[in-house]
């Protein structure tokens, strides 16, 4: 208590300051909780395991060895599996975006028989995730001799009901008059699609592209089922396989996990707005 009585506004001011400080304190605490596991992954990747355990597993890196990333990339096979993941993810993302745009166009701008039935069948696929159809799909791939191949890895993921709905929603926002005007100008459907519909729906297409990439990159159960040879492992499978090695080599597994996450970190930083919008509309498994 100071001798001079504080004025009302001063008290107010101090209270507000304290409240702001409180919020920062809470936000920082939450940030620490979220980042701690990631931080520990980095610590464990950089530390040489034997020395690290010898020091009693501290919260900071010990005997830092940067060569671990090279070891993960080469001996750990992460370099090879990053290649498989990159190609497969680009094929799946590109495939889903193209087929979803085409299907959405049909639903939004064209009249055709059995439209309602086709629509219901599209929705129905939401109830048939890969976990449910896994066994027969693996059998199909075996019959087609597509195990351990890119067609096998990406085949079931070249179309997306979610993408079709999201992009359809974007197309519906386009005024009908625009289609009429375009057709008066002699635009065919192909030209209307590429010159008008797609450019006007860029935000929703971008959002879907980002979440399609995220979902494709993170796939686990399907690539595990159809890549029986190490050579065809995606990076997620590669990281899981590395984690099963002895504690003495655990740093390589963590280095691999960091490398596997880098493309998504780039995605998160560069396309945060699209990612947030996409995940809010339809979440994909991380």
């Amino acid at each position: 208590m100071s001798a001079v009585p504080a004025s009302r506004t001063q008290v107010h001011h101090v209270a507000r300051r304290a409240r702001t400080a409180g919020w920062y304190l809470l936000l920082t605490a939450l940030a620490v909780i979220i980042l701690f596991p990631i931080y520990m992954m980095v610590v464990r990747a950089l530390s040489t395991p034997v020395t690290y355990f010898g020091r009693g597993s501290p919260l900071y890196p010990v005997d830092v060895e940067w060569g671990v990333f090279r070891a993960a990339w080469d001996e750990g096979g992460i370099g090879r599996s990053m290649g498989v993941s990159t190609v497969a993810t680009l094929l799946m993302t590109g495939g889903q975006v193209v087929t979803a745009i085409l299907a959405a166009y049909a639903f939004a701008f064209l009249r055709f028989p059995l439209r309602r039935l086709v629509f219901v069948l599209f929705i129905g696929t939401l109830m048939l995730p890969i976990e449910v159809t896994l066994i027969p799909n693996v059998q199909t791939m075996r019959d087609l001799h597509w195990l351990n191949s890119f067609p096998g890895l990406v085949g079931p993921f070249l179309a997306s009901a979610l993408g079709t709905f999201l992009i359809h929603q974007g197309f519906r926002a386009i005024p009908t008059e625009l289609l009429d005007a375009a057709s008066l100008d002699g635009y065919g459907h192909m030209r209307f699609l590429t010159r008008v519909a797609v450019p006007l729906s860029k935000p929703v297409i971008a959002s879907f592209t980002v979440i399609a990439f995220l979902g494709a990159w993170n796939q686990f159960i399907w690539p595990e089922a159809v890549s029986t040879e190490t050579h065809w492992q995606t990076v997620q499978i590669g990281v899981a396989a590395l984690s099963a090695t002895t504690p003495d080599h655990s740093n390589i597994a963590f280095a691999g996990a960091i490398v596997a996450s880098l493309p998504l970190v780039v995605l998160l930083v560069a396309f945060q707005r699209q990612l947030v919008r996409g995940l809010t509309a339809g979440a994909v498994k991380g």
């Binding site: 939450l30 940030a31 979220i34 993170n218 970190v265 998160l268």
Partner: peptide, 22 residues
């Protein structure tokens, strides 16, 4: 802070499992 709170989106199930393994 918002970016930090979003950050676990960038870890796949396999990666987050490896992290929790440790």
């Amino acid at each position: 802070f918002q970016t930090i709170f979003t950050s676990t989106v960038a870890t796949s199930t396999a990666v987050s499992s490896v992290i929790f393994f440790v």
